[in-house]
């Protein structure tokens, strides 16, 4: 395998005396799905918040390398991580723009490109041809992802009025419209029924294969995790307790202990 897309080295995040994440190191390659799992409160979302700039890590280095460029995420502002380093994320509790239509949600995601095309609004105000063309491209990209997520029929519906499963997929589509190199999904299958999460699996595999981007996934639904992950990192109390391909994780004694508790006879 080539050089990893994302390298996390000695990441620690402390809130006062609480160590949410302690000395975590792992790597995530592109063209692969890396899952981060662990019991509730293990620090999974904290890792994501550090990666996407919502928290500034106490210690550690987060390196994103692609196309010959290296970004040190721990030093960047949150919006710059999305804009320059091209890390996109979704949220555990869906954060769409509920009063805007699905299409508008996807257009907002392409803000940076469109802003430049509209010459920071001045050109767009006078209706320059360059901006109109850029907007058409943006709509085409949005249409492509709506199509992939099977949401094309909802394009002009307000995002807040969509069914729950569709909102989850729309949020993923919105993240993809930012043309990321790393996509961080925080529990994308939470609240989905088995058929919807099977759909989601297919969508994620298609994204991995077609776009060649790296996917980082937090998930509790084991059918999703075991079904599509190429590599799994297991956290418990902020520490990495296991790492490996799905088959190895399934058999790992410490993982079973973390999830199911100590067997009674060993205590």
């Amino acid at each position: 395998m080539s050089a990893p897309l994302l390298t996390v080295e000695h990441l620690s995040m402390r809130f006062g005396g609480l160590v949410a994440v302690g000395d975590l190191s792992f790597t995530a390659p592109s063209r692969a799905i890396t899952a981060v799992i662990g019991p509730n409160g293990a620090g999974k979302t904290t890792v994501f918040n550090c990666l996407t700039g919502f928290y500034r890590p106490s210690v550690g280095r987060l390196t994103l390398a692609h196309a010959g460029q290296t970004h040190f995420l721990e030093r960047m502002e949150g919006f710059d991580i999305a804009r320059k380093a091209r890390v996109a994320r979704t949220f555990q509790n869906i954060r769409l723009f509920p009063n805007m239509t699905a299409l508008e949600n996807l257009i907002v995601a392409q803000h940076d490109t469109l802003m430049r095309a509209s010459l920071w609004s001045i050109g767009g105000l006078f209706g320059l041809a360059g901006y109109r063309q850029a907007e058409r491209q943006a709509v085409d990209r949005a249409r492509h992802w709506l199509d992939q997520a099977e949401l094309l029929e909802f394009a002009d519906v307000e995002a807040g009025a969509l069914p729950y499963g569709a909102q989850r997929k729309l949020e993923i589509a919105r993240a993809l419209c930012t043309q990321p190199v790393l996509l961080c999904l925080d529990e994308p299958a939470a609240g989905l029924n088995p058929r919807e999460s099977a759909d989601l699996n297919r969508l994620l595999l298609a994204i991995r294969d077609a776009e060649g981007i790296g996917i980082l996934l937090i998930e509790h639904d084991m059918s999703v995790v075991m079904g599509i992950s190429d590599h799994i990192v297991v956290l418990d109390y902020g520490q990495k307790i296991a790492e490996g391909p799905p088959a190895a994780i399934r058999a790992d004694a410490s993982v079973i202990r973390a999830y199911l508790g100590e067997p009674e006879d060993s205590a």
Binding site: T52, F79, A82, F91, V108, A109
Partner: peptide, 8 residues
């Protein structure tokens, strides 16, 4: 918050 995650 979603805006920040989208690079705005």
């Amino acid at each position: 918050i979603a805006c920040r995650a989208l690079g705005i």
